[in-house]
Design a protein around this nucleic acid. Structure first.
Lengths: 340, 340
DNA sequence: ATCCCGTTTGACATCGATGTCAAAACCAGC
DNA sequence: GCTGGTTTTGACATCGATGTCAAACGGGAT
């Protein structure tokens, strides 16, 4: 009997003001922790808020203040790998620290859907947008993206008109190769992903650089490209292994390729890492952590990238520089397991 | 010169009305496709909207109409597996069809964070909340969840006070076992996940039922429990295989267990599926599609579950029944590969 | 030309909060 | 008790849209 019949009734500032016998403005002050309120009134208001279980209506507040505290996150794909999840986690954690909430949308990579999604987000007056992809590549984001602060995540545009956060593929390739060198390997092959992909090219550049620095001549027959799949890794490894001089280590363009390499080695009764050390890339938990032996690999710092993208965006929103210019490259850490 | 200097200026209804020489209400009517507008004015207004690149401010609209068209999605974990991604995709697709937008938050499973998250969403006046978990289990959602329409997804409460959408584990276990029977197997073992988990118990129930229906006695030594990991699958399979009567098929509580079983079979030079057929559960793409041979498995219908949860919620919001009562169980489809 | 009736149209209030600004209250100090 | 300055307080306008309702309009019928 004490409660109003209509469940949809929500208590507002006005109700609280009435109950506490003060003006709405005073209630507003208390809610916003304004110091210009006497202790006496503050107590009364706080009690009324408690009694009525009042929650401020953020929609109304945002209309007045022009701050929605919403950030849009547009991704091409969500959920096929753990990548997008880690990005989301990193971004959300950073967002929370700044009192921001994330509005995540996936588009399937369709340009029309992307444009539509950005429009939707703009209509809701998000304060900024993170435009993310599932793997490192060049993109052509919708025109309307320029209508609000934006950061590219795991992708870039050639003229750097948006700030971007990318994995440092070259450092990753370099460090992977260095690691093999440090383990005493000298004849290091690389079975890479597909030509032309920033990931593949960057990783190969790092590989070349590490070999050059170590004073090892680059044997071009040891650097082969394929696609990103296990089957290709398997057959490429077969070819490499039947040459006269067997490599003593194989750096794989990703973890799936490494699984194919494992298969090929097993077929020839070669032991990992005794006969051939194997290192992957991407650190796909499902694969790398549960293969036998466990696969040493370079992790993609998706969580950190998500966090950084959000920090960059927040900085811009708070009035700092937009962060435009050379993309921010985030180092890929080595995850050591048993295969090296 | 034609554009205002301040980039932050956004065109509003008023600007359009001024430009078209009509009242704001008329513009509002055009934007909302109200038929009570003469063609003449409608054209003028549309042109002005085009010229000024006007976009309605949804924040303001929602304040007036009380409809935010926002749905909150609270999950314990996002991104460790493809599960949450598929749920998200399914939910978002359904949401879009109803003009709803998804506000996804992950909580790490911490009850305080969960309560806080729900409060945040309520402050933003979401029209409903989907409370989801990464794997099928009982939950204790925050009290405040009752303040808006809510649906549980991949989880449940014992008294069914919220509607819930769950995978039909029992049907899955049943169908997996039926499939092995149809392939001519008679001595079917099950290496299950952990006791007490709804997934493990449901799948075992389906397994029992299928065997009983086929008139096969249940050999209790063939139904073993472990945890959900590859290592346990490996050792459990070893034990099963060294018994006097080797099973001719193994139904695994999940795909990781199946990978351990593969290892154990390989060790004994047993061929899959010739000597022993293997079927998994969960259809973890990363594992099942790329193992050798490819793993036949029961898929968890996460995409469909996400979609259904959203439909249920929308139905409630649109004034239909809440959907409370027995949880909705979504069938798990068989994904046939080479291991059976 | 006038009247009637249905359709368009716009003036004004409203949603729930905060910004502005002036009035009210308070407090010293003389 | 008055004055001047600081602090509290509240009346009112405002954000950008839509709801209400009455006025203006238009087109037949008389």
């Amino acid at each position: 009997m004490s409660k109003p019949a209509r469940i949809t009734t929500v208590t507002t500032l006005k109700d609280v003001a009435l109950a506490a016998g003060v003006s709405t403005k005073t209630v507003s002050r208390v809610v916003n922790n304004d110091r210009h309120v006497s202790d006496n009134l503050r107590q009364k208001v706080l009690r009324a808020i408690e009694d009525l279980d009042y929650r401020p209506n953020l929609v109304a507040r945002h209309m007045r203040t022009k701050k929605t505290r919403l950030i849009g996150l547009v991704t091409d794909e969500i959920g096929t790998t753990s990548f997008s999840g880690n990005i989301l986690r990193g971004a959300q954690e950073a967002a929370w620290q700044h009192g921001l909430l994330l509005l995540a949308c996936h588009t399937g990579g369709n340009p029309e859907t992307e444009a539509h999604t950005v429009d939707l987000l703009l209509e809701r007056h998000v304060e900024g947008i993170i435009f993310a992809t599932m793997y490192h590549r060049e993109v052509c984001p919708p025109e309307s993206l320029k209508n609000c602060p934006a950061v590219l995540l795991d992708c870039f545009v050639s003229d750097n008109r948006y700030p971007a956060v990318l994995p440092d593929e070259c450092q990753g390739g370099y460090q992977a190769t260095r690691h093999l060198l440090q383990r005493g390997r000298r004849r290091i092959a690389m079975i890479n992903g597909k030509r032309g992909f920033p990931g593949a090219e960057g990783r190969a550049a790092g590989y070349r650089q590490a070999l050059a620095e170590a004073g090892l001549p680059l044997d071009e027959s040891l650097l082969v490209y394929g696609d990103w799949w296990q089957e290709q890794g398997f057959s490429q490894a077969q070819s490499l292994l039947q040459g006269p001089e067997r490599p003593d280590a194989i750096f794989c363009g990703n973890d799936r390729i490494a699984m194919g390499v494992f298969d090929a080695l097993r077929e020839r009764n070669l032991q990992v890492p005794r006969d051939v050390a194997v290192i992957g890339f991407d650190n796909m938990e499902m694969i790398a952590a549960h293969s036998r032996p466990g696969l040493t690999t370079m992790a993609l710092p998706h969580h950190e990238m998500g966090r950084l993208a959000m920090e960059l965006l927040n900085h811009h929103i708070e009035g700092g520089s937009s962060g435009k210019g050379e993309p921010l490259r985030v180092p890929c850490p080595l995850v050591r397991r048993e295969s090296t």
